[in-house]
Design a protein around this nucleic acid. Structure first.
Lengths: 366, 366
DNA sequence: GTCGTTGCTGGTAGCGCTGTCAACGTTCCT
DNA sequence: AGGAACGTTGACAGCGCTACCAGCAACGAC
């Protein structure tokens, strides 16, 4: 009985069409735009497909239609749990949609990013998610020329390629410093690692806030290009102390560093927040249960990933958002580690349940 | 000048072939198996491709060759940093190869895994990496029937589908308990969250070790199906204490829980290791810089991912490993938190630099 | 009743690449 | 010298699907 099945033993669209008593092209339409079929044929194709267990061949579809259903994602790191939260959001949003995620790691190199971008674009992705706003000129040109929707994530800036979702790291850092000043801290150190563009902007925010207060001192800033870690936080803090300034607070560019600083304080028997206040960045889960609980700047990473992917898919399907740039803002989560300066050098070791006061702000650029 | 470029403006293999003065099929071979060409044609095709900036159309290739260059990866979680290390290894190994990674998240559900497996297999992946050894019968049947290499990662068991790389969680847990006993601890509690199959096997190892010592007591075990977190570690430890047994050590199923236990001890002013010893699992980076430094069982996650992907690619290309099951073992990294029991209730707060004594073992099943 | 319009359906012709097999030239052996 | 063996090359025929356009029926307007 004829060549029903393909060589590989898989069911083709033609078989589904035959069983349903329609032409292959009609069956094809069923999978792409069921509304275009009459109800009768629609149900016939549907049951035929189910009966045969038909699964479309994506390669054939991509070849014939000249486009893929792949969303390319470029992130700088797979290790950093900041990105794993974003990724989880992206994957969650893509699930249930027809699109699949193609992930690549730029390792914080914009040259690597450019290379990967070229690779992605050659395969005509349905859409693209890229991290940050600091692409090479060449990358930017490619993105501008790409005929697919693009979302830049993690931060917002003045000049979106297409869509953009994130928050102002500069403003977030300023808010953190403002909080420390409110609590009576004045000599605030900065500890930063990796120093990618977003960390750099946090540093910029810190510097501007300190200058505004007339308290800026270059000796208060300790940074390194080394990838971040808890251990490194301790080491950088030790450096900071060794430089001599009598500090009363530390703003850490991320929470791992903050935890490292906390441990180093404990090691040196420095009271937190009695002698040194600590503020982190990102508000990872452990910050709320450290002893003392650690103040941090909460960022909406999961939501950022999820919204980015949702916006992108909407745009791919022609539903462009009315608002292409989305500021997700941040919140300074005030906890014990930054509470008001007092002479008593012993930290209040009470339950972690103490109510967290919050300062919620959208980022703003003025 | 004919229809040189394709409609989409992209360069096809045929143009490269024309410029090089060879047939399309010869040009095609250049990209798949350059060795098969004469040196003359090889260089001609190479320079023609470079001149035109040719990029192969993967969809057409996949359609014509009936296979893809996609490696499917099924992992249970994107959040858990255990998996981000494994993933990084996988991505690192895939870079530079022709294969691309297609990642999916089973969310710790073997039913979801089965669904995703069906989806993957329909696209004829070049290879598959799946987590663990607890698939549904249906999944297992599909894997057996798949005509591509498969690597099971994270643990090893008696009945590999194809290749397997990991270690014995059971043995690792036993080694951790043995270490605590060596240090003079006897009443060892167990704290576990999520309770996926691997955590369950760690519990099994713990139970067997405790029974061997005649010290097992059901009240020593506190577990929950809730996803793990630092905060949860503190809460479970509080539960454990509330149950009343006078414990002198806690074995935590992972490091986040261990950190939570440490914080809870600090909150309650319980000396570590003076009153309670703590051992974690995985040896995440922060364990070495906590105060006191925290003992943990080191697992080779990055290496596991990297080796899995390398083995898989080798197998895809016909170089099957002589040893299809690889035990990467583990190491108990002894640190301050589990040091020998003593009456003094104040922990030794010295530098983190204290030499770490290690116990290195391959997992063994006897 | 005629014409245009709309909604649905089908035929044709590829998308860009590779599997298969045959053909060719060269080398090496007997 | 003849022939086998090998290495290299090319022609052909699709892979499974969809873009494009034509066709057809049903319907309403005049």
């Amino acid at each position: 009985m004829g060549r029903k099945r393909t060589k590989s033993g898989k069911i083709r669209l033609a078989e589904v069409a035959e069983l349903a008593g329609v032409s292959p092209i009609t069956a094809s339409r069923f999978f792409r735009n069921p509304e275009a079929l009459s109800v009768a044929k629609r149900t016939r194709v549907e049951s035929a497909a189910k009966e045969l267990g038909y699964v479309p061949n994506l390669a054939a579809r991509a070849l014939a239609s000249q486009r893929t259903e792949v969303i390319g994602v470029l992130i700088p790191s797979l290790t950093n749990n900041v990105f794993s939260d974003v990724l989880r959001g992206i994957y969650d949003a893509s699930e249930g949609s027809r699109y699949s995620i193609q992930l690549s790691n730029t390792r914080y190199s914009i040259l690597q990013e450019e290379k990967l971008l070229r690779l992605f674009l050659a395969q005509k992705p349905a859409g693209l998610i890229v991290t940050g706003i600091d692409q090479t000129a060449e990358s930017r040109a490619m993105l501008q020329a790409a005929d697919c929707p693009i979302v830049q994530i993690m931060e917002i800036g003045p000049d979106p390629v297409d869509m953009m979702i994130g928050f102002s790291h500069y403003d977030a850092a300023r808010a953190a410093i403002a909080h420390l000043f409110e609590q009576g801290h004045r000599k605030v150190g900065f500890v930063g690692a990796r120093m990618d563009p977003r960390v750099q902007r946090r540093l910029d925010g810190y510097v501007s806030a300190m200058k505004d207060a007339g308290s800026f001192d270059q000796r208060l800033v300790v940074t390194t290009a080394t990838p971040t870690s808890v251990t490194l936080g301790g080491a950088l803090f030790a450096d900071l102390l060794a430089r001599g300034p009598d500090i009363d607070a530390v703003f850490c560019a991320n929470d791992d560093l903050a935890l490292g600083v906390l441990f180093e304080c404990r090691r040196r028997e420095i009271a937190v927040p009695g002698q040194i206040a600590i503020v982190g960045f990102n508000d990872l889960e452990f910050m709320a249960s450290a002893v003392p609980t650690l103040t941090s700047v909460r960022t909406n990473r999961y939501e950022m990933g999820k919204t980015a992917a949702t916006m992108l898919i909407d745009a791919i399907e022609g539903r462009r958002p009315e608002q292409p740039v989305l500021d997700l803002g941040f919140k300074v989560i005030e906890r014990q580690s930054s509470s008001a300066r007092r002479s008593d050098s012993r930290p209040a070791v009470s339950g972690a349940a103490a109510a967290n006061k919050m300062i919620a702000l959208p980022s703003s650029h003025d």
